[in-house]
Design a protein around this nucleic acid. Structure first.
Lengths: 343, 343
DNA sequence: GAAAAGACCGAAATCCTTTTCTGTTTCGTG
DNA sequence: CACGAAACAGAAAAGGATTTCGGTCTTTTC
């Protein structure tokens, strides 16, 4: 009986029910509930009361069918861990009031076939727009040019320059990180980063070198590329410290690599930040707040990215030009104990 | 123009269009595409070809309106980090084919008002069912008894015993962890865990004590409660090692605490796993694979939980009893280098 | 060759809401 | 008192897909 309650209890209250209870036609009931002007005050009150009594919720499907808008967005991701997609989703939800826009989250698991299925399903659900999130910042294949809804690529840009892509500005991020290190008085800076095939790695290197050049400095040694893991952070830092014992800062390509660097510094008795400063990228909460000391990092502002994406989608529906090309968004420096000693 | 393409390009192909191209009525077109029997083979072929030519996608809104099923599920969460909800979401997506069921992911951010809004929005979208995910395993308020759709609570059970809740079995998890340590020859086992107000903490303690008792052993010292952080893992382990230098295993309430314990062991020159074994809970990928050595952990099988939840929802729609009460799911032991030396 | 049976296609109703248009009532004013 | 205007309520269509039911045409069988 309890089980049945859940399934049959509310039993889909329709506007017709409300109208019957209030003793008016459905047309009037609709107008009353939507604040249209052609309804007398007392009639409106009767309808509103009836609606509340039945706890009526308008059927968005029917509305969408009629109006041609559903108030939904599809979020198509390949980011298995959910590390990047979650803030983007929250930003998209926030773009308008809570519950005004709802998000279909689909994980394609990096599979193109699966992505096609998901895409088709989303279109059949008549989403108002699509946000495509890649798992790395390299450009990815477009999901197609002539889709019936606006598409915004976030994090990973589309290969097609006619598409609109919103990405974190990794060059600026690299620059920002180095500028911070320099402002902390560091001069002998080395760089450990991840997979060189990632655009994110290359862009951050570029920004870092720019900032170093502007200050009349050079990187200590070569950029050390390998993988985005703590293990690599540990190993690379060990090599660095042996080869260049006088370095006073390690610029790390990700928070994980930075954690590895912190571990090695600790193992070798180097004090952070006094002897060596360490800085990471991503500002991944779990990583930066649990290390010893806490980790200074560059935050790519993903939530803002998600919010802009959703706003662009709905602006496009209102007739505004969607726009094309890759737009990058400025990062934010978050200072913690790994670069500045706590006072 | 490019922007316009995206918005107006596909322009909503309807079944009417397909029927017109194929030279049949909409009724026949529908039957042809849905494999109904009342259509001649060559007619069906014409319709299918027309549909492909126009790349027709049926409007799920219209179908849902008519049939009363939308093939969507609402996932209402308070799990800000997305650590638990993502595997659950993936499980729910997998319960049926890719794209057969789509999931609305809503983050209530721990706010009750916001949750109410989201709930209302989901109901207005006529989701077929609801999956409610809590941020901790303690019981949480029911979202209501007489909702028009089946509701399944996952991870955090509902306070209302008439609701159906699917949760990880933390007692079994605690038992499993200790049994593993014992099978590795450990006898002097201590336990560091997180916030004692969390049901997860208490349940794991309970299971651990059961397993110890069954083996005729006792816990070394008191259970050390505080917070779910690496910092606490480090500090607590340091205290433990000083007070009970002969312990040979630390059972940690989470992977984060376990990482802290590993750090302390390393700082003090204790070899893991030879001198001391360390085990965690959650099997959180980023944590367990990046530590030194890699961390043995208990996996709560969240993806399976999400899958069962979705299956239950749709079974309930097919008239099956939804069921009530709290059902717990067996965990899985994942052995890594922190308890068993690599050969 | 005619009647019965079967195969196939189409018109229309249905789901729920919004909007337009038409019809009725009431009020104010000349 | 009558007429015009304003205010309000309701009927009906639209949106897209599915299904039932009725109608047409072909085939089979005696």
């Amino acid at each position: 009986m309890a089980g049945k309650d859940h399934v049959g209890g509310g039993k889909a209250v329709t506007l017709t029910d409300v109208a019957r209870i209030a003793g008016v036609s459905v047309a009037t009931a609709s107008k009353a509930l939507n604040g249209r002007s052609q309804v007398a005050a007392h009639t409106r009150a009767r309808v509103v009361q009836a609606a509340e009594q039945l706890s009526f919720v308008p059927n968005t499907l029917a509305q969408g069918l009629l109006v041609g808008r559903t108030g939904t967005v599809g979020l198509l991701t390949s980011d298995l861990q959910g590390r990047f997609v979650i803030p983007i989703l929250m930003g998209a939800e926030d773009a308008f009031g809570a519950g005004r826009v709802n998000v279909f989250l689909c994980d394609a698991r990096g599979d193109t076939i699966r992505e096609q299925h998901q895409l088709k399903a989303l279109l059949s659900r008549r989403v108002d727009g699509l946000i495509v999130v890649g798992s790395r910042t390299d450009s990815r294949p477009s999901v197609g040019r002539d889709l019936p809804v606006p598409v915004v690529y976030v994090y990973a840009p589309s290969e097609d320059p006619e598409d609109l892509s919103l990405v974190p500005d990794n060059v600026a991020a690299g620059r920002l990180a180095v500028e911070h290190l320099i402002s902390c008085g560091r001069r002998r800076i080395a760089h450990v980063t991840g997979d060189p095939s990632y655009a994110a790695a290359q862009d951050r290197v570029k920004g870092a070198l720019e900032a170093l050049g502007a200050a009349g400095l050079e990187l200590v040694g070569e950029v050390m590329y390998s993988e985005w893991s703590e293990r690599w952070g540990r190993d690379a830092s060990a090599v660095l410290l042996e080869r260049y014992p006088d370095i006073d800062a390690v610029l790390c390509g990700s928070d994980q690599i930075a954690r590895g660097a912190l571990d090695t510094a600790r193992d070798q008795g180097r004090k952070v930040p006094n002897d060596i400063a360490v800085i990471g990228f991503d500002n991944w909460d779990e990583m930066v707040t649990n290390s010893r000391p806490e980790l200074t990092s560059i935050d790519p502002n993903l939530q803002l990215l998600g919010r802009s994406a959703a706003q662009r989608v709905f602006a496009a529906l209102d007739g505004e030009e969607l726009g094309t090309g890759v737009h990058s968004q400025a990062p934010r420096l978050v200072i913690r104990g790994s670069t500045v000693a706590r006072q």
